[in-house]
Computed example of a mutant assay.
Amino acid sequence: MILVDGQPQDQVSAQDRGLLYGDGLFETIRFTGAVAPLWSRHMRRLAWGCERLRLPAPDPGLLWQEAATATRGLADAVLRITLTRGTGTRGYAMPAAPRPTRIVAAFSLPVLDAVSYRDGVRLHLCETRLAEQPRLAGIKHLNRLEQVLARAEWNDPAMAEGLLCDQHGHAISATAANLFAVVDGVPVTPALERCGVAGVLRAELLEALPRVEVRELPLAECLLASELFLSSSVRGILPVQAVADKVFAPGPVARAMQSHWHELGYPMEQA
């Protein structure tokens, strides 16, 4: 089901600023039945993004009601909340009194390959580099063209994801997941002050890991890590089996974080 401003429909104005300028934010939330274990983290990130973009924040209680309506009847669902600045006069200037457009859409959870959780996934090393824009870094804004171009670089079904770097050759993330590496026994995740999305599961893992470093991660150092894994609020924890021709093996940190994911309330994928 798709709700637009609380009403069942699937259309918005052709003059909506989300369509014209990518002026807005979104959250993608996994539901297990009527439960979304990371809901509060998604709401905090949405509020943070609204503050960054000077966008009126929606009422979390209203969003929860609409989420419950949209996901009704789905055993496992992916909910997308899209918030735009709404319509306005032509031009980039923000409307003096914006009336945001709120889209709440639920879809069945895609089939997840249990073997990938056991053995890991292969990553394409993307040529597309992430641009730096500190004012947008971290938030989940609507402009995903970098990810679209990166994803167009491969069509091999054996490649589950792509590894993205910044302009300086530092590993940042996958196209739709955050990245963790274990370097000299210490978990490391890239700093995201200049580019990248600060994922909600990443935030959860930063609290769950007994010691973790958030810092720049040069690609060369990343490829020498003892283990790599991805975190996604929809897919959970995926060990990395290979980046291009560099081979890895699922390690104890990834396994521990998979157990933590399960303890949050998500099912454990069984191969």
Results as ranks from 00 to 15, higher is better:
31 F>W: 12
68 A>P: 05
81 I>V: 08
23 D>A: 12
45 R>S: 13
33 G>M: 03
75 A>F: 01
39 W>A: 07
39 W>R: 03
62 L>V: 14
67 A>E: 01
78 V>L: 13
41 R>A: 15
70 A>E: 14
22 G>A: 02
54 R>K: 12
40 S>D: 10
49 G>V: 00
80 R>E: 09
65 Q>E: 14
18 G>K: 05
12 V>M: 10
74 L>I: 00
31 F>D: 09
27 E>N: 08
18 G>A: 05
50 C>P: 08
44 R>N: 05
84 T>E: 02
29 I>H: 00
55 L>F: 06
18 G>H: 08
64 W>Q: 11
50 C>Y: 11
81 I>C: 06
25 L>K: 00
72 R>I: 05
79 L>W: 09
20 L>F: 14
73 G>M: 02
20 L>N: 04
68 A>K: 12
83 L>C: 09
59 D>P: 04
60 P>W: 04
18 G>D: 09
30 R>A: 15
79 L>P: 12
47 A>S: 06
15 Q>I: 02
16 D>A: 12
15 Q>F: 14
37 P>R: 05
81 I>N: 03
45 R>E: 10
57 A>C: 15
86 G>I: 09
33 G>S: 10
24 G>N: 09
44 R>K: 02
65 Q>C: 01
59 D>C: 12
13 S>Q: 15
82 T>Q: 05
51 E>F: 03
19 L>A: 15
63 L>E: 07
26 F>N: 09
56 P>K: 10
25 L>H: 11
49 G>K: 01
79 L>M: 11
36 A>S: 00
84 T>G: 04
78 V>Y: 02
21 Y>P: 14
85 R>W: 10
17 R>V: 02
17 R>S: 03
12 V>C: 08
71 T>N: 04
71 T>V: 10
46 L>K: 00
47 A>L: 02
54 R>P: 01
68 A>L: 14
89 T>G: 14
16 D>N: 12
71 T>F: 06
29 I>N: 07
66 E>V: 03
17 R>D: 07
84 T>D: 11
14 A>M: 08
70 A>I: 08
48 W>N: 08
66 E>T: 07
